[in-house]
Design a protein around this nucleic acid. Structure first.
Ligand SMILES: [Zn+2]
Ligand SMILES: [Zn+2]
Ligand SMILES: [Zn+2]
Ligand SMILES: [Zn+2]
Lengths: 170, 170
DNA sequence: GAATGCAATGTTATAGTATAACATCAAGCA
DNA sequence: TGCTTGATGTTATACTATAACATTGCATTC
């Protein structure tokens, strides 16, 4: 019926994360330039930290890694940058973890869903139109007007699941 | 295709919440008796507070309403009771609000979804098998093993939406 | 009944998450 | 230049949750 769009996959072993991160930053630069919104040095730095890996990052971990010279930055610094990045669609909040992750396809239409591995801590983002359409339909049946959907799935990613015999393997 | 099961609806104007609350408590009593788990006075009181309305409640609001004689109870008191009630399936946590609400059908199989009104603050719980099956299928395609699903939809309930002409109305 | 074991609760302290409120700074513009 | 506005700095505090250890109360066993 509808397509599974993987916005941000679990990285494969041959994944070049340096490029992955660079391309996310470049995309943000480009988008902000188009929109006239200001990706300042601080905001860029925070986005860089969010994209340090595919593992959602906590606000206070960002804070610790900012180390603004004499003393550590204060919480509002980070939360304001995150607010901006979320408004612009570059960052998602994972509600069930109080953590933040980069969006693999800023500007993608429709709601996103997240798969979060309890072992390695990495998360993947998908945008399954079927899921969000169906939720929308259910809401409509209850006469409910949808503003935003949050879907977070916890479990085990392929890499972390104890190896199992697969067809075609010895 | 699959059925929309409304576990806990937005209450209608003729809703008798006293009965609604009493029945939830009775159900918990019965279930605990069957299981041999202990619904102590404290735990029962917390469940009662969770069911005070259809609006998810914050842990510290429960705390404030417990007023254990000389001084107010301490946080662990409430969090431990909530942990018990969640383990037993009587209470759900709404992750996007850090709030808790009673389950309208303890023991229901499959994942639940929540609709939360940004105006009145009330929440409804549904258990749409289609949504959770579809999410499960998507996860499987990515070789991801699902432990738990969280789906929370924010928006406007029927009662809070500005009135609109409907078919058949003057 | 005393001794024991165990789950529940009490108590104190602290960790972790987020925002309010106001001060300062820097860039663009009248 | 002086003004406006948005970004950042700074301090304080609110809100959410858990760690760690003490105490209580009830059931089991001797
Ligand atoms: Zn990557
Ligand atoms: Zn993993
Ligand atoms: Zn009710
Ligand atoms: Zn409402």
């Amino acid at each position: 019926m509808s397509t599974l769009h993987v916005v941000s996959p679990f990285p494969r072993s041959n994944h070049s994360h340096a490029r992955c991160q660079a391309s996310a930053l470049a995309c943000a630069e480009r988008t902000c330039a188009e929109r006239g919104s200001r990706l300042t040095a601080l905001r860029r730095r925070v986005l860089e930290l969010v994209w340090r890996s595919h593992e959602p990052i906590k606000a206070y971990e960002i804070l610790d890694r900012l180390h603004n010279k004499p003393r550590r930055a204060a919480p509002p610094t980070v939360y304001r940058a995150l607010d901006f990045l979320r408004r612009e669609g570059f960052v998602h909040k994972i509600e069930s973890m109080n953590a933040y992750m980069g969006c693999g396809a800023p500007g993608h239409t429709g709601a996103a869903q997240f798969l979060i591995c309890r072992l390695c801590g990495m998360a993947a983002e998908i945008a399954d139109a079927g899921v969000s359409l169906r939720l929308g339909k259910r809401a409509r049946e209850l006469d409910f007007t949808v503003d935003a959907q949050t879907t977070e799935i916890h479990g085990l990613c392929a890499g972390c699941r104890p190896a199992r015999r697969k067809r075609g393997q010895t």
